[in-house]
Amino acid sequence: MAAGGDHGSPDSYRSPLASRYASPEMCFVFSDRYKFRTWRQLWLWLAEAEQTLGLPITDEQIQEMKSNLENIDFKMAAEEEKRLRHDVMAHVHTFGHCCPKAAGIIHLGATSCYVGDNTDLIILRNALDLLLPKLARVISRLADFAKERASLPTLGFTHFQPAQLTTVGKRCCLWIQDLCMDLQNLKRVRDDLRFRGVKGTTGTQASFLQLFEGDDHKVEQLDKMVTEKAGFKRAFIITGQTYTRKVDIEVLSVLASLGASVHKICTDIRLLANLKEMEEPFEKQQIGSSAMPYKRNPMRSERCCSLARHLMTLVMDPLQTASVQWFERTLDDSANRRICLAEAFLTADTILNTLQNISEGLVVYPKVIERRIRQELPFMATENIIMAMVKAGGSRQDCHEKIRVLSQQAASVVKQEGGDNDLIERIQVDAYFSPIHSQLDHLLDPSSFTGRASQQVQRFLEEEVYPLLKPYESVMKVKAELCL
C-alpha cells in the first residue's frame, strides 16, 4: 500500500493539533497551500530580480507567473513527485505547466533550498508574528487579574506546605514575570531571523556568478533584492546548502521555554482548584465526569500541561538535527523538520489560546482563602504575639514557653481530632496574655502579614508589564474561544 493518505478522510490519521486544537490561522501558515504558494512567490521574486539585473526574462513571463501564483494543481504535483521522487522539481514542473512561456526560467540558477529553506524562514517569521500578540493578550488578562487582587491576602506555599502570606495578585505576578520573559525572547528570536537568500547549491553562489558572467556586484544585488522582497532586513552571508540548523534550535528553545512557563502556571491553577481557592472557567453544560456528576475538573489547565510537556520535548529534535548536518548538509534534517517545526508552533498556539481562555474567566473564592488563612495564621502570628507581650512588660522566655504549650495543644486538636485551630481562643482565655487581649485582632490582621506584596504588584505592572504590552494595544480586544 502506498504511503500517505487522504487526510480529510475519517479513515486516515490526522494530527489532533490540526484537527482538534490549533487555530485556523496557525494551521494555514503550515498548510501545503501556504507552503507551495510561497515557493511560487519566491520563484517570481527571483525572476523579477534577475530581470532587473539584466537576464533575458520578459515582462510577459513575469506576468504569467504572477497570474498563476494561486493556480496550484495539487493532484498534478503529487503525481509528479511520485514520478520524480523530488518535491521541488515536482512543483517546478507543475508551475511550468500553467506558465508555459515562463517554464524555462522558473528556478533559474537556484537549488531546492532556495524555495525550501527560504519558505521555512518566512513561515517561522509569520508563525512567530501570530504567537506574539496571543502571548501579549494572556499577559494582559493576567495583569488585569493581578491588579484587581493585588491586596487580597492568601496563604503562600513553599514545598506545598503553608508559608508566609502573600497576595493573590502577587502570586499571579510570578506567572506574568515568566511570560514577559517569554514574550521578550519570542520577539528577540523573531527579529534575529535572517533570510537564507540566493546562495546556490553549497552556499557559494557559483551558479549565479556564472549567470551574471562573473559580476560579483550583481550577485550581491540579486541576494539583497530577493531578501528585501521577502520582507527581511538581512540575509546570511555564510550558508551551506541550507541555512544553519542552529536557527531551528533557537526558535524551538524559546517555544519550549514558553511551554515550561505555561505548565507551571496551569499546575498552580490545578492545585488551587483542589484547594477550592480558584477555578478555571466551567461552562453551564460542561460535564466533569461521566460517573461523578459533582466533579469540576480543571480540564483546560490539564490540557495545557499535557501539550506543554510535548512542546518542551520537541527542542531535542533540532538539537540532534543540527549535530548531524555533515559538511554542507545531509538530508537527516528533512523529514524531522517537516514534523517538529509545525508541531512546535501548533502546540504553542494551542496552549496560548487555551491559557487566554482560562485567564479571561478565572474565578476566585475569597471566603475559602480566608478560612485557610484562619487555619494557619495563628501559628504564624506567634512571633508577633511574643513581641507584643514583651512590649507590655512580659518575659520573652516565659511567653515563648506559654505559646509553645498552647500551640501544641491547638495542633493536637487540628491533627488528632480534625478540629479547627483554636490557638487564639486559648490565648484569649489565658490570664497571662490579658495585657494584649485587646491587640489580638490587630495582630491577626492578614494584611499585616503580606509585606509589600501589593506595592510590588503595582510597581511591576507599571514599570515592566504595561510598557512591554504597549506595541500590542491594537490587538488586545480579541477574545479566545474554545470549541473543545
Rank of each mutant, 00 (worst) to 15 (best):
F160V: 03
Q408A: 15
T202P: 00
P133F: 14
D129P: 00
M65I: 15
I249S: 07
P293A: 15
Y432C: 09
K199Q: 06
P318R: 01
E463T: 10
A388C: 07
S253A: 13
H97M: 14
L255V: 11
P133L: 15
E277G: 02
K35R: 15
I427G: 04
V247C: 12
Y472N: 13
A2W: 07
H400R: 03
H217F: 12
H310V: 10
C399F: 05
L209R: 10
R372D: 03
A230I: 06
L423I: 08
H400S: 03
G109H: 02
T227E: 02
Q210G: 12
K233R: 12
I237C: 10
R303T: 01
D422E: 08
S151R: 12
L311C: 01
T158P: 00
E70Q: 11
I424R: 15
N274V: 08
K246H: 07
I265F: 15
K402R: 14
E425I: 07
R309D: 03
G5M: 15
H107W: 00
F460K: 00
Q456K: 04
G203A: 01
R338F: 00
T244L: 01
E481D: 14
R396P: 06
A480T: 15
G240K: 02
E220S: 11
P162C: 08
V254K: 10
F95K: 01
S9N: 15
K233G: 12
E220Y: 09
P378G: 04
A143D: 04
I436Y: 05
E213P: 14
R270N: 03
Y13R: 10
F212I: 07
G96D: 07
V168Q: 05
E81A: 00
K199T: 06
V363L: 15
F157W: 09
T450I: 13
P56D: 14
L128R: 02
L209F: 13
A335K: 01
E343N: 14
D87H: 05
E481C: 14
P133S: 15
L275I: 12
D32R: 13
S207N: 03
F28M: 13
D129S: 11
D248C: 03
N421Q: 06
Y432T: 09
L132W: 15
A235H: 12
N274G: 04
H310F: 07
P471Q: 15
R33P: 10
Y432K: 06
I72C: 09
E280S: 01
Q439A: 15
S207M: 05
A260N: 00
Q63D: 05
M387T: 14
C399W: 06
E376V: 05
H437C: 12
S359T: 11
P293S: 07
S140N: 15
H86E: 00
F379K: 04
Y472S: 10
S323C: 09
R40D: 00
D87L: 06
C399Q: 04
C305M: 05
I57R: 01
Q320F: 11
A431D: 12
S395C: 12
Q51T: 06
V115M: 07
E370S: 11
E60H: 13
K402P: 04
N185C: 13
L461T: 03
K295Q: 03
I105L: 11
M292W: 02
R85N: 01
A2I: 11
L46K: 01
Y432W: 09
A78P: 10
D73Q: 09
G288H: 05
N118L: 02
T52D: 13
T350F: 05
P467I: 11
R196T: 02
F449L: 04
L130N: 10
D178P: 00
V429S: 12
G96W: 02
F160H: 06
H91N: 13
E401K: 14
E425Q: 11
K284T: 14
E148R: 12
K402H: 07
Q356V: 07
I122V: 09
E283P: 01
S474F: 15
L152E: 09
